[in-house]
Design a protein around this nucleic acid. Structure first.
Lengths: 328, 328
DNA sequence: TTGTACGCGTTATCAG
DNA sequence: CTGATAACGCGTACAA
């Protein structure tokens, strides 16, 4: 910045003001500065700015997986309004273990973000206490089944699964299999399983027809495995409830391959409403989760809080929607 | 840090050393510091560290869309090795316009990253010059059709499309339609189109059967539209070449709906090898792009360069692979 | 409208 | 092994 100031023949202070639109700087001075900056390829050092102003203009987000497309939608919807409000999103991969999460949280907090968005909540004790000590607004997303640290935007995974299970039961299904997500204890999926079990137990149905988390592969292939395994457990199976659309789509395709009539013989449902769910005949019945809306809401909560507003609603329930298609 | 030093009864300098494992610090002092830090929830301020040490330990990446799952794979593969090497990934959404890109580049450069990864290259002049002036290692990815600013990791979109088109021609197809990606001039897709056209012209075939970028919707639905529009242009159409798998899958499903035999009547191909491409019968013939490998390679290039090595290969061609399935 | 002194929290350097 | 001091590049507060 000193260089720019010299090149433009003004003091650093004037350059600083020109960049921040603070105080008054004459048009002529401003253009001289802009020219010098463009010529020298100068970009203000945000670290110095942060140190001096004690504002980082950074919002951090932790995310379990950068390649999960549903989280991608949330991220995108989060990033856009934040940028417009003058914040930069700092992303950290927090993996699926408490240890990785702690490392991720420590790293991002080192950048002194003014707010934190946790995508797919799942804290260890240590991370939780570290976040709390940071004293910044926090929005937890994608899971409303636990009381939040601060604010939250999402939906109840348990309620979503329960409602879908109730729907299946309501259509007369009695021998319903469950395909769990293949990851060690992720709370979102634990809640889905719980919702499913609650609904079935309330109806007095069997809850032992499952492909448990610790068994089998992931992705679409898990759906294939599920059809085989569940039919083995119970040949008269009449529905397969999948914890996520990927498994549901795999199961639909496997049934098609085996000549099993969906939904006449077996109903199949998923959770997520992935784009592809509507495409594959007969269409996957699923739960729409509004991933984008979760991101937008999280951004709004953080921005409003930082703007000094104390939003009435600290917990935004975005809800979900049962999407009925041909599969069940 | 001053607080921690006081709490542990040492000087700030000792605390700093303890955190960086620099110089020698006695075990006892070290544990006292760790305890104080844990109790107070202290995390070192990276902005101050950067200002003082002139090292940010940040690698920046610009990406056109956070919700694009193929880029997600690259990101994930990029993030992991960087983290292991002690770098934090700073992500900026650069959109699909030169203007947005310039803003994104300026923002991330403000954080003084030690390296930059450009995902899906596409620069305006201004951004290019700004990047060059930053004087840091740069890896451009996903597009090897232009000479890189510095380093590159990816493949030739043009060659990939040409090879796929040649394959189609080799199987006897003569009236081949092209479904372009619906975005204003993205170079990757311009190159794909060019590769397609080159192959067809070399074989003396028509290149006017197209759904151009500026027409129609996106995603799977674009495939549906394509079937309709292309058959209208040429009822004897015998192949549909899609710029991306999403369109290809949409086209396959549309043919299925209309009772059009794929591949007997019409062959369909995509580019990308999305997970779902192998699932939907008869399986989409496509080009596998090794999105993860691109990320890993980019990370390696940056890390090696920062470690002082001047890698021999400044341009890593990850290549691609024609995946032949039932659709063509 | 523009300039000056000082401090932000850390690290490099040099001493002990 | 530990400590003191001076930067790092900018913003705040005040002055001109």
């Amino acid at each position: 910045m000193t260089d720019i100031a010299a090149a433009a023949g003004v003091s650093v202070m004037t350059v600083s003001r020109a960049y921040r639109n603070a105080g008054r700087v004459s048009e002529e001075t401003r253009t001289r500065i802009a020219e010098a900056a463009a010529r020298l390829g100068y970009v203000p050092n945000l670290a110095a700015a942060q140190l001096s102003s004690r504002r980082s203009r950074v919002i951090a987000a932790t995310i379990p997986s950068l390649s999960h497309s549903q989280f991608g939608l949330t991220l995108q919807a989060l990033s856009d309004p934040l940028r417009e409000a003058g914040y930069q999103l700092l992303l950290a991969d927090c993996g699926y273990s408490a240890e990785e999460e702690l490392r991720a949280v420590a790293t991002v907090l080192g950048h002194r973000p003014e707010g934190l968005v946790v995508i797919g909540v799942d804290h260890g004790e240590a991370a939780q206490s570290m976040i709390r000590q940071a004293g910044i607004p926090v929005v937890e997303t994608w899971d409303l089944d636990q009381p939040p640290l601060d604010m939250a935007a999402g939906f109840s995974n348990r309620a979503a699964a329960r409602r879908m299970a109730e729907y299946l039961i309501g259509t007369g299904r009695r021998r319903i299999g469950y395909v769990d997500f293949p990851a060690p204890v992720v709370r979102r999926f634990a809640e889905r399983r719980r919702g499913f079990v609650e609904a079935l137990e309330a109806a007095g149905l069997r809850v032992d027809l499952t492909l448990p988390a610790h068994e089998g592969v992931g992705g679409y292939a898990r759906g294939h495995q599920a059809v085989e395994k569940l039919l083995q457990l119970e040949p008269r199976l009449d529905a397969i409830f999948c914890a996520t659309d990927a498994h549901g789509i795999g199961a639909m395709l496997e049934c098609q391959r085996r000549g099993i009539d969906v939904p006449a013989q077996i109903a199949i449902t998923g959770i997520g409403d992935f784009d592809i769910a509507a495409e594959i005949p007969p269409g996957l019945t699923t739960v729409r989760l509004h991933a984008g809306e979760i991101g937008r809401s999280a951004a709004k909560l953080i921005i409003d809080r930082l703007a000094g507003a104390m939003p009435q609603e600290q917990v935004l329930d975005i809800g979900f929607e049962i999407i009925r298609r041909g599969s069940g």
